[in-house]
Computed example of a mutant assay.
Amino acid sequence: MDTEVKTTALESSKKALDLTYQKNEISKEIYEKLLELHEVRNKDFDEFLAYLKSDITNQNLKKEKAVVAFSGGVDSTTSIIVANNIFEICAVTVRSKYIMDAKTEQSILELTNSLNISHEFIDVNLNPIFEDTKSGKYHPCGRCHSTVEAEILNYAEKNGIKYIIYGDMLSIGHLSIKKVDKGINRLNILSFLSVAKDESRIILNEFKIDINQSYGCQLIRKAHKHKSMQKFTIQRILREVRAQVITPEEGLKNILDVIKI
């Protein structure tokens, strides 16, 4: 990520954090720990890595709970590693046969066991979205994403959890931390820290985690059988390239995955 882009994004996310605290939407302890993490990230990346691996971040802090929307991919796994320095993590995976096979489920279980965090699957009905995708009526991502977010929010509400963490890297700057509903705060922690995908892979490597996935889930690959739907996915990939959260090389690879060249 270009230094100027990173600096601008970090300045914006810092303002969002300050505003959230000024509105009394987060506790002083969480504010201070997020601020500390933000300041370390603003320095040398090796120092940031060392901070994530150290025990000092866990001292003298009674951790509040946070739900992490966990897909088992690079972004959500890195989000857990980063957020675990501040929160007591509960990973929640929204499960459907249309977006997850048995191999992916097993991988998720192995990951959460290795990370030593609690984890739950929540089953969700995606039949209408699948049928509309199969027929070429709608691209699935928007509706699927909304369904997943609603399930995660409902889980947080039922369990009295005030923080939901997502790995989506496009919610940059002031959008990276915000109140969403009933005293619950949404934190896109990688966006908050301007951590690009290649940096996430370095973090995972430091924690001896190797994740190799092709682009997209089963449902989105079903959508790509319709040429008209490929362009919507490609537009998102290009947004990620423009935001510099993925490199042009990775963007090209993902596009080729979409169009199957």
Score class of each variant (00 low, 15 high):
G142F: 14
I234W: 04
I184R: 00
R239N: 15
R186I: 14
I234S: 07
S200M: 04
R239H: 11
L238Q: 14
G136P: 10
I220P: 06
D181R: 15
E199H: 01
I177N: 02
S146Q: 13
L190I: 03
Q230H: 02
K222F: 11
I209G: 10
I161Y: 05
E240Q: 05
L193S: 07
F207C: 11
G216H: 06
V148E: 00
C144N: 07
I152K: 10
E157R: 13
R221G: 06
F192D: 08
K178A: 11
Q230M: 02
G136I: 03
S171M: 06
A223C: 11
R239Y: 14
K178P: 10
Q235A: 15
I189F: 08
L170W: 02
R186E: 11
M169P: 07
L190E: 12
L170T: 04
K137G: 03
K134F: 02
Y163W: 12
K178R: 14
N159H: 13
K182A: 07
E151F: 05
T233L: 02
I164F: 10
G183A: 01
S171H: 12
R221Q: 11
N212H: 13
Q244P: 07
S191I: 05
K134D: 10
H226Q: 06
Q213W: 13
K222T: 14
D198C: 07
Q235K: 15
C144M: 03
V180A: 04
K178Q: 15
H145R: 10
D210W: 04
I189C: 11
S228F: 08
D210S: 03
G183F: 01
D198Q: 11
E131C: 14
I164H: 09
L204D: 00
G216K: 07
Q230C: 00
A243T: 07
A243G: 03
S171D: 14
K162Y: 05
E157V: 01
R186S: 12
R201L: 08
E206I: 06
L193T: 04
